[in-house]
Design a protein around this nucleic acid. Structure first.
Length: 278
DNA sequence: AACGGAACCTGAAAGC
DNA sequence: TGCTTTCAGGTTCCGT
């Protein structure tokens, strides 16, 4: 269930495992993971090529092959890319295995919300939606101005800031977790209409977002990422998944609401509604 | 253009 | 214990 930081880690795993190697064996264990083309067409577009670079934009990955073909990968909600040593068992729910002489990479995805497509770069960038992604959230840095320009180019808008942050066509990479985390760090209510946010708030949100994503990236600078709800890992987030627990800043109870059909977590005290000038 | 809701799937956890 | 319900971090499509 990856957002930008988890996909960034995945990109590094792919680089380390596949870069510089020709893919001599490509096994599609479940054809449903292949999007917009047949399993045979996918294999044909990949087999025998070497991976020479891996790029990420938002939550999307692109593996650049040495003949101009590319492999688009999206992890969906439960996707994970795992380097598996020769001889070791592939993880459960592995949908695709990319293998070369010295190792292999398994794409496991229990729910199959993720997907892959392969073919000529121009065609795949168009069909996969890569071309329609907004600015990558890491490129916003800590700039409130850049964040506002990305989300509200016309300066007006009524959508909730929480919903706007998750719009991949404007800002690529932020999902449900980091949207809640950034707004908590900023002290901004998730239901604030974007058109009503003051300049200082945009700055706080940008810095909150950078800090939240930066912590995850830093914590996993080496090795694999572990998703929440997987294998008894402690929840590393400040408010996400903590309904009813005390706010780490003021002690008031964290409240769970629903926006756009998605769970939102916030502190009612630190992130008050109808706050003039936020 | 913009929003809500259902759909795509499976597995883990909570509830009974 | 075991059955049922609920929920999940993403995206797309469809109707309003």
């Amino acid at each position: 269930m990856p957002e930008l930081p988890e996909v960034e880690i995945a990109a590094r795993v792919v680089s380390a495992c596949l870069e510089g190697h020709a893919l001599t064996r490509v096994t599609v264990h479940d054809a449903r993971i292949v999007r917009k083309q047949s399993k045979a067409a996918f294999r044909k577009a990949v087999l025998g090529r070497a991976v020479h670079a891996v790029t990420r934009r938002g939550k999307h990955l692109l593996l650049m092959l040495d003949d101009g073909n590319v492999v688009w990968v999206h992890l969906g909600m439960t996707g994970k890319l795992v380097a598996v040593p020769n001889g070791a068992r592939p993880p459960a729910n592995t949908r695709i295995t990319f293998a070369h002489g010295e190792g292999r990479l398994c794409f496991r995805d229990p729910r199959i919300f993720g997907g892959v497509t392969a073919g000529p770069g121009d065609r795949v960038r168009e069909s996969s939606g890569w071309n329609r992604l907004g600015v990558d959230a890491l490129d916003i840095g800590r700039s409130g101005k850049r964040l506002r320009m990305a989300l509200v180019p016309k300066g007006v808008g009524r959508r909730d800031i929480k919903v706007a942050l998750m719009d991949q066509h404007r800002l690529a990479g932020v999902g449900n977790i980091y949207a809640s985390e950034a707004l908590f760090r900023a002290g901004v209510s998730p239901t604030t209409p974007v058109g009503e946010l003051a300049g200082v708030s945009w700055g706080r949100i940008a810095r909150g977002l950078a800090a939240a994503m930066g912590e995850t990236l830093g914590a996993h600078s080496e090795g694999q990422i572990t998703y929440l709800k997987e294998g008894g890992v402690d929840n590393p987030f400040l408010v996400y998944g903590r309904a009813g627990e005390p706010c780490p800043r003021c002690g008031a109870a964290i409240v769970r609401t629903v926006q756009g059909g998605r769970a939102t977590f916030a502190c009612g005290k630190c992130q008050p509604d109808n706050q003039p000038g936020t």
